[in-house]
């Protein structure tokens, strides 16, 4: 039987969830035996395969128009979608920005910051994504598995990957359900 394929990508977050994934250490060899790793931020394929992958994993919150595109593309190209980490599960620290007006946040960073020179304005080139109100992944697309934690512990991530690799839907409870 062909190995299940996995793609991952990051939305607005801090890459801490990816670091926690790497903290499975030597067990990465085991994961590479069980699944075929396709597009991820640390491999050079840029997107999930057009004909789909078995598992899609997204970290980070939906924070701009590019995040929205990436989230929808992953959803449409994977069978099981995992929201990994607090940012993806409920918006996390990123969602703290929703307490402020987006324009005020942009102005603070690009116009008012003490170190800015006099000519500053908010970047708006069409090359750039537009920020949007921060949402959890599940508010943007349908999520099949939520894995909370900031970041989730490496052991929890390894458990989730092992279950998915064997075609099971991971159930977090007891030791594997952690909020830290």
């Amino acid at each position: 039987m062909a190995k299940p394929t996995i793609s991952t990508d990051w939305l607005a977050g801090c890459a801490g969830c990816e670091m926690s994934l790497l903290d499975i250490d030597e067990r990465i060899v085991k994961v590479a035996e069980l699944v075929e790793i396709r597009s991820t931020p640390i491999t050079d394929l840029k997107e999930p395969d057009l004909n789909g992958v078995d598992v899609g994993i997204l970290t980070g919150a939906v924070n701009n128009t590019t995040n929205q595109e990436v989230a929808h593309r992953m959803r449409s190209r994977c069978k099981t979608l995992v929201a990994l980490g607090d940012c993806a599960v409920f918006g996390g620290v990123v969602a703290m920005r929703n307490f402020f007006k987006l324009d005020d946040a942009l102005r603070r960073a690009y116009v008012e910051a003490e170190s800015n020179d006099g000519e500053s304005k908010v970047p708006s080139s069409p090359e750039l994504a537009r920020p949007v109100e921060v949402r959890a992944l599940g508010e943007e697309v349908k999520v099949d598995v939520n894995v909370p934690g900031c970041p989730p512990d490496a052991d929890v991530i390894f458990y989730v990957l092992s279950e998915l690799a064997q075609g099971r839907k991971p159930v977090l409870k007891g030791d594997t359900l952690q909020w830290q």
Binding site: A12, G13, C14, A15, G16, C17, E18, M19, S20, N63, N64, T66, G92, V93, V94, M96, R97, F99, F100, L102, D104, A105, L106, R108, A109, A113, E127, L128, A129, P131, C150, P151
Partner: peptide
């Protein structure tokens, strides 16, 4: 291609919360 806005959303927090909030800028 991204902006999260830490400079803004830390306004109003207690100063001693920042050593816990700021690391979420970067997990590496």
């Amino acid at each position: 291609n991204e902006f999260r806005g830490f400079e803004k959303f830390c306004e109003g927090r207690m100063y001693f919360e920042l050593p816990s909030i700021m690391p979420r800028i970067c997990g590496i």
